[in-house]
């Protein structure tokens, strides 16, 4: 039969061993968390780079690209800003499709996504021009939005007339 001192010694030895196990486990966990954080950071960087590449592609597109959210334009690429004659005094963002004379056409296009629709649009200087557009539902910052890709077809229409 063990003496009280021996019992206490064995108990202490178990406590020390348990403490060492805990330290090892915590070190392992810290390393796992560090690696997870590194992987998350790398994934985030890749995502940011992908978004930047997409942004550049959209910005450099010769077609006008607009995004409408909640009834208002929230995005317009360079081609769109040129097409609709945006200047310092007149900005596309914050306008509605109705301001561009496109409300009804986009509504019609929404029923037939990707179908090409030809219509007449209104520039910010209130001049009109022939336009072909396609609409596609999308998600913009987590909300349902509409992407409109448009091309100025005025030259072709003039030739046809």
């Amino acid at each position: 039969m063990a003496t009280p001192e021996e019992l206490l010694q064995r108990r202490l030895a178990r406590e020390i061993s348990a403490r060492q196990q805990a330290e090892t486990l915590l070190e392992q966990k810290s390393l796992e968390l560090y690696i997870e954080a590194q992987e998350r950071q790398a994934a985030l960087q890749q995502l940011q780079e992908s978004e930047e590449r997409y942004r550049q592609i959209v910005e450099m597109s010769p077609d006008a690209i607009l995004v409408e959210l909640g009834g208002l334009l929230v995005f317009a690429n360079s081609a769109a800003r040129r097409m609709f004659a945006e200047d310092i005094g007149r900005q596309l963002l914050g306008l509605s499709l109705n301001d561009l004379g496109l409300q009804a056409d986009v509504a019609r296009a929404t029923e037939h996504p990707s179908e090409r629709i030809e219509t007449i649009a209104t520039r910010l200087d209130e001049s009109h021009f022939d336009i072909a557009l396609r609409c596609m539902p999308m998600v913009h910052h987590g909300q349902a939005a509409m992407q409109i890709a448009a091309r100025d077809i005025s030259d072709r229409k003039r030739l046809e007339r």
Binding site: A2, R11, A13, R14, A18, L25, L26
Partner: peptide, 24 residues
């Protein structure tokens, strides 16, 4: 008792000889 705890630990087949950490 401490003796009973020690006895059942000694009598059992334990991977860490009765040393358990809460996070293990």
């Amino acid at each position: 008792s401490l003796e009973t705890a020690d006895a059942i630990i000694q009598a059992s087949s334990l991977s860490t000889h009765g040393a358990y950490t809460t996070v293990g």
